[in-house]
């Protein structure tokens, strides 16, 4: 299933930025990265900051080998986010590229 998803050139990375925002607690990173691994999403970089129990985690991922569509991944992440009480966004890299790079 690959509906609506941009197809990348053979061997090229297709990057999606995943952000997790919410109250910090045990198991958030494990929960999210576990899901990504299940769907063959490769994590290229992770950064996180915690301010007053408030977690902001940003992951740069490569979805060129992903086994589901980007929209399905977004649904899975949203469900997970609701379950563990954080907000998870997964957005194609281009939105940040267009806005912040010329």
């Amino acid at each position: 299933m690959n509906t609506g998803r941009q197809t990348s050139q053979e061997g090229e990375l297709e990057r999606v930025i995943i952000t997790v925002v919410g109250k910090d607690k045990v198991g958030i990173i494990a929960g999210v990265t576990g899901l990504l691994s299940e769907n063959n999403v490769n994590i290229l970089d992770i950064s996180q900051t915690i301010m007053q129990d408030f977690l902001t985690m940003i992951m740069v991922t490569d979805i060129s080998g992903m086994t589901v569509s980007l929209q399905r991944l977004q649904e899975i992440l949203t469900e997970k986010g609701e379950k563990i009480g954080v907000r998870i966004n997964a957005q194609h890299e281009d939105i940040f590229k267009y806005m912040h790079r010329i």
């Binding site: 952000t19 970089d45 940003i58 740069v60 939105i95 940040f96 790079r101």
Partner: peptide, 14 residues
């Protein structure tokens, strides 16, 4: 692999 964007930029967009 460089991220390419700062956390501040990403959070600004969001």
């Amino acid at each position: 692999m460089p991220v390419g964007y700062s956390a501040a930029e990403i959070m600004e967009t969001i």
